[in-house]
Amino acid sequence: MKKLIRFLKVYHFLLMFLVAETICLFLFFSNNKFQKNAISEKSLEYSSKVYKKIDDFERYMQLDEEIKILHKENANLRSLNSNIDTLIDNISVPYKYIEAKIIKNTVFNTDNYLIINKGKKHGITPGMGIVTDSGVIGKVILSSENYSKALSILNTRNSISINIPCRNKNNNIIMFKGDLTWKGTNHMNGVVEKFKLSEGYTINIGDVIKTSGNSLVFPENIPLARIESTYQNQEDGLLMINAIFINNMLSSRNVYIPVSLHKNELDSLDYLATDSLIR
């Protein structure tokens, strides 16, 4: 105890200086958006390097499984290639895809995220979507030079614009718009809340919910979830749709980032339209 008191007497000015300096730095970075973003990017860059080392070791231990995944992806690419002419005719907004790998992925928290091994220098920017061969997996929120952090579909803050397949009396499928969210419980289940189903239409269990393509985040018709059940609120008559995510978030590794080839042109039109309204 005497040694501690002696230490505090000798170094109390230095300790007070360090405490004051820490408080000043905290206040400076908390209230300065530019500096806060810079620190966030640096933190992402350094922590991602650590995650990458861990991921490299895990991949080495699971090499056989990775080879199986690559074989499956090659088979899918061959199938897509055989139908490429048909696909091109049906695409309204063309996309290119940047391949990446997940090096960090949380699934058991309320707000989960993932980190991929591609960043600004690879053309990745916040707002871009992330998909796998199976379907949607997340959306980028922060990019450093070599890495990007994304909201997982298992994040209560993530909402994805979707097409919900509804069938008429002739069993023809008509797509209705909606939003799919996650409620923070089962890592396999998403939900569509307060959906108004038009008279004469039904929802079939097992039908696949896909992206709407209303924004440039995801192309249209990317699979997202399979309808599991529906529940009608007796008070307002609106439906709650429970769906099972198609992607297995526990095992997802190889991903792709869709990049709209017309993004700059469409963004400029939005800017010009907004600017003309202001004037």
Rank of each mutant, 00 (worst) to 15 (best):
G135V: 02
E235Q: 13
R59C: 00
D179E: 14
N74F: 13
K49H: 03
M240H: 07
S152F: 05
F57W: 01
E45I: 02
S252P: 00
K169F: 11
M249N: 06
N31C: 05
T86E: 15
L277Y: 14
S229C: 07
H187C: 06
K9F: 04
I222K: 00
D85L: 13
S30A: 12
D275I: 06
E220H: 04
L272Q: 14
K33I: 10
S48T: 03
H187K: 12
V217T: 15
P126I: 05
E99F: 11
Y147W: 07
N158G: 01
F7D: 04
K177Q: 14
K149E: 14
V208C: 02
S134T: 07
I173R: 09
Y46L: 12
S251P: 01
Y11E: 08
D85M: 10
L15M: 12
T132I: 01
S43A: 12
N214G: 08
N189A: 06
E235Y: 10
K101Y: 02
N74C: 09
L269I: 15
I84V: 14
I88W: 04
I241Y: 03
R226Q: 15
D85G: 12
L25W: 01
M128Q: 11
H262I: 02
I241W: 01
S152Q: 03
S143I: 12
G190P: 07
P94G: 05
N146A: 09
E65W: 02
S144F: 01
F17H: 06
G129D: 05
P126E: 07
S229M: 09
L63A: 11
D55E: 08
T125N: 12
K139D: 05
D64P: 03
P126T: 06
V259L: 12
F29A: 06
K33T: 09
V107S: 09
Q62D: 10
H71N: 15
Y113A: 05
